[in-house]
Design a protein around this nucleic acid. Sequence first.
DNA 1: GTAGCAGCTATAGCAGCGTTATATGAACTG
DNA 2: CAGTTCATATAACGCTGCTATAGCTGCTAC
Lengths: 242, 242
Amino acid sequence: MKKGGEPAPKARLLRAAAALLAESNGEPVSTRQITEAARVTAPTLYHHFGDKEGLFDAVVAEGFSEYLEAERSIPTSGQPVEDLRRHWDNHVRFGLDHAHLYTVMFGNIRPERRPTMVASAEAFLEEVLARAAAASRLVVSPHEAARSMLAANIGVTLMLIAEPAAKRNLELSAMTREAVISAVATDSESDPVTDTEGTPSVVVAAIALNAALQVSHPDQLSSSELKLFLEWLQRISSRSGS
Amino acid sequence: MKKGGEPAPKARLLRAAAALLAESNGEPVSTRQITEAARVTAPTLYHHFGDKEGLFDAVVAEGFSEYLEAERSIPTSGQPVEDLRRHWDNHVRFGLDHAHLYTVMFGNIRPERRPTMVASAEAFLEEVLARAAAASRLVVSPHEAARSMLAANIGVTLMLIAEPAAKRNLELSAMTREAVISAVATDSESDPVTDTEGTPSVVVAAIALNAALQVSHPDQLSSSELKLFLEWLQRISSRSGS
DNA sequence: GTAGCAGCTATAGCAGCGTTATATGAACTG
DNA sequence: CAGTTCATATAACGCTGCTATAGCTGCTAC
């Protein structure tokens, strides 16, 4: 392992690619620009990354781990719903700070790459939501809540990125944030929402309990017990017609 | 103007481009493929559209006008909030039906093209919301409401497109839709959320579930099951120290 | 030492891309 | 029929992502 002095070609390529990608505002960046900026010839790139897309993926992965790091550095405030707000805002902030990277991460449709990113972000958000669920604050399962929140979060962030930086109105973010959060979580556990289907409060309580179990005492229940338990929940919720 | 027979090269180019763009699943489509499919040589393309991007823009514009047409063909039901749902669903459906086109329209960040599309979609949605504002009361201005709804709508649609068609769960759409709508339109009186203390954990959730069970469906669980269940609750609650 | 081996990097070049300078044909207009 | 304009074709340019091949480095084995 090298220690000091000049960075290795691989690192130089990564940094050059990241820099050029950030500068050149959305327009494509050529491998020749990158290798020239990294003072390296073409085969070096392909030796280390196999592909242009491989290099870009590495850049994106770096940016994504930065994103996850920022997410993880957010302390739990003790108020789960407030935590949800912070994570939402952090997501938006990251998107605006790394606009190009963000659009590659979340605006792209590559059926291979994006789901990986999205799934990771989703999983992390699900953890936060599980904590909210443990506090009886959730009216739907953490998984669905995470997907919904993340989708709205991405939509808002893309929209904010798309419009000129001067005109950006962060209230769009705050407003949509509150909309989704209030539909997904209740600040007080007294008022479970009865939507069009008339979801009974049993389901709400069951979801909360289930989440609480998973968070705080995952080993108190064997998997078979848990399975049976969930089966009950389903049976109960499916028959609650009245 | 030509009338019948074979379509003019310009139309053939448009159709070929649209077809190839729809088929080749996200991967780039070359001008040579397009001109070959349209049985035309390169300069014809550039004569009519100036640019590859110009051609693609024309394809997108065609798709977008199709989208607007579909939007406009939705009748007003008399219930403005119900109208919002229909427009939301129509947006999602269009996105899933024209996945590639959609991502070019809304997933892209081209600071030139996208705002045009978005602004048009936004303006149209704002009209619908204005009607909602006239009939029942909106919580916020139609303009902000339209932006928020559209952002969430786009986020959800992109997310649905991104995941394999087989696994698509449209409930994500319905859920987020209701979230945004209920925050934007005062269909039922929902509390503007203010935070409270977040103490409860497993015990509270368990008690809530237990109470809910007893109230609504006491006979859904056999006595032995209930006994085991209550045993769990006790086991869990006795160790939760928070 | 030096022979062999593995890991990086460089030379030079390919096929494909978007694009265009130039030329040719077709279709009106006078 | 000549003139003008529009529409298409020929052939090529410069650029792209990528690679077959070869050379250089630093290592271990004898």
